[in-house]
Simulated scan of single mutants.
Amino acid sequence: MNVDTYIISKDTVEEQKILYDEINRVFGESLPIISDPNLEVIDKMGMKNGDVAYRGYGMLDSEGNVIFQTKNDHWGEEIDQTLNDIEEQYENFTEK
């Protein structure tokens, strides 16, 4: 898929650095992390849960419109299913 991929987190820059480094250590590469301390993007995505974010994934189009979002605490453990869902959602969006 020809998409930009990011992790969006409320975490501090220091906490994000730890996460980035751990992902890089385990997988040999990581993703850019966007800081969203006020949960603005997270809220727009429908992923705000009080003063924290739900775990999950989603997609925005180039205009910033939400294509889909999925709340799932286990998306990483179910990575094959997660990737299939993202690919299916992307294909449905690009066919329109």
Rank of each mutant, 00 (worst) to 15 (best):
S62K: 14
E78G: 03
E29Q: 13
N84A: 14
N84D: 13
D51Q: 13
F27E: 07
Q69I: 05
W75T: 02
P37S: 07
I67F: 03
R25K: 14
D80I: 15
D43P: 11
D73L: 13
I86M: 15
I42P: 00
G46Y: 04
I86D: 02
F93Q: 03
K71G: 00
D85M: 10
G50Y: 06
G76I: 00
K48W: 01
G50L: 12
W75K: 01
L83K: 15
D73A: 11
D43I: 08
I33L: 07
D80F: 08
D73E: 11
E78F: 04
N92A: 14
L39F: 03
I23Q: 01
S35A: 14
V52L: 12
Q69C: 04
F27N: 09
W75V: 01
N24T: 08
Q69R: 08
N49V: 06
R25F: 10
N38K: 11
N38P: 01
D85W: 01
K44I: 08
V66P: 05
W75I: 00
F27H: 09
I79Q: 06
P32S: 04
K44C: 02
Q69K: 14
L60K: 04
I86G: 00
V52Q: 11
P32I: 04
N65K: 14
D43M: 08
I42A: 02
D36Q: 05
G76M: 02
D51F: 12
K48M: 07
V66Q: 09
Y57C: 00
E77W: 08
G58C: 07
M47I: 08
T94Y: 11
V66E: 02
A53Y: 01
Q89Y: 08
L39R: 02
E63F: 14
D61L: 06
N72E: 09
V26F: 10
G76L: 05
